[in-house]
Computed example of a mutant assay.
Amino acid sequence: MSGMLSSAKSAAALRRVARISLDLLLVLVTVAAALWLVGRMWSVFWPVVVALLLTTLTWPPVRFLRRHGWRPAAAAGVVTLLFLLVVAGVVTLIALPVASQAGQLSDSVVAGIQQVREWAAGPPLNIGDDQITRALDEAVKRVQDSAGSVLTAFGTGVSTVVNGLVTAVLALFLMFFFLKDGPRFLPWLGRQLPGRAAVDVPVVAKRCWRTLGTFVRSQALVGALDAVFIGVGLWVLGVPLVLPLAVLTFVSAFVPIVGALFAGFVSVLIAWVSNGFTDALIVLVIIVVVQQLEGNVFQPMIQSRGLGLHAGVVLMVVVLGGNLAGVVGSLLAVPAAALLAVVWAYLREQLVPAVPEPAAVAPGPGDPAAADEA
């Protein structure tokens, strides 16, 4: 009899595992289909994502104006125009130093290459000039052989720039409409959905919007602080291209962990090429100190509640996003993971009933606690 019961329990357990496996397979197929659909519609999806990210940054001033009696269209239009002016000013401030210091930087690069050649010619490498010349000739030959690939890459780069401009224009128009009509979206969405979804979807969307806004605004403020401190250090040391490097530090703040490493590497490299090894080492120390202040002071103060993601999870999703979609994947990986965490938390709230706390029971006569109290 016990053998028959064990067989029945084993069969029931196998059926349960099979059902769970089937559910997981259906979920994975659904996710794969959703990702495939997003990839097919990426030309439309990407401007919407950019517009949402920009809207989280520009919504606070629009909300302020609307609370002080401005019409939605006027508030959205003024803020969009101011945003365009700020972006144009930043681009101008970056382009001018790059153009004025390009010759100095190129001379520094040549001098740095000569220093590397002299270092490589000495011990322990002992690489002669004939070996370096042979390597350069081989590189030139490979470039000549791949001229067609270079032209193809150039055409691809031009196409990328054009697509980027189109995406930017679409994102700006969408940002204006999001700022103008955003508060009316969730009530409209609730009226379009049937049954319980009319309540659940707007609630989840509101939580996701709050989380996305917290991430973007906090990262922008932390990135601005990093850019100011690192930029001042570069300026004091006389490193060229201070403003472009500061802007790169600010933009890289939106890619946690990996972005800081990349921006720091570029800053140290330019400092080494232009000013020498000692200044490059000082720049490295400045970057390390600022990053420590960011991790231990800035972010805990600015982003007190955080995103609910462990640092290891952040690192893994950034690497995964970079492998799947390059720079765009790295940029969107952390907010996407945070939004998934919000959705999962809401589902857990709805599907898993709250466990009631055990009621306090008075100790009986034979309870050791009663004896202690006595």
Rank of each mutant, 00 (worst) to 15 (best):
L237H: 11
L331C: 14
P244E: 06
L261C: 13
I257G: 04
L237W: 09
S330V: 04
V328S: 15
S218R: 10
F262R: 00
N323K: 01
V318H: 03
A311T: 08
S252Y: 10
V236L: 14
I270C: 09
G312K: 08
V288S: 05
A253G: 07
F298I: 08
I302R: 01
L248E: 02
F262D: 07
L243Y: 07
G223W: 05
P240Y: 05
H310A: 06
V283M: 06
I257S: 00
I302V: 05
F298N: 01
Q292P: 05
V222P: 07
I302N: 14
A260P: 15
F265H: 08
I270G: 05
V328C: 00
L234W: 02
L332M: 09
V314N: 09
V327N: 14
Q291C: 10
V216W: 10
G223F: 05
V232F: 07
V236C: 15
V290N: 09
L234N: 04
T249W: 00
I257M: 13
G276N: 04
V285Q: 03
D279C: 03
P256S: 12
L315H: 14
A336E: 00
D226I: 03
S267Y: 12
V289W: 09
D279G: 01
I302P: 09
F254P: 10
V289C: 05
F229S: 11
T278Y: 08
W209G: 12
F229M: 12
V258L: 05
V228A: 14
A224D: 01
V228P: 05
G295K: 00
I270M: 07
V283T: 15
F265E: 02
V288W: 04
W235N: 06
L212R: 03
F229I: 15
L243P: 02
V232M: 14
N275F: 08
R305F: 00
V273C: 15
I270Y: 05
R305P: 06
A311Y: 13
A336Y: 09
Q303F: 13
I282A: 12
L331H: 04
L225N: 03
S274E: 08
G321K: 00
V290A: 02
A271D: 03
A246N: 04
G213M: 00
I230K: 05
V242Q: 04
Q292E: 10
T278F: 03
A253P: 13
S274G: 12
V242Y: 06
F277H: 12
W235L: 11
W235R: 13
V222L: 15
L309C: 15
A224P: 11
A260L: 06
V297I: 11
F215S: 02
F250M: 06
G264V: 04
L221A: 15
G308F: 13
L243N: 07
V297W: 09
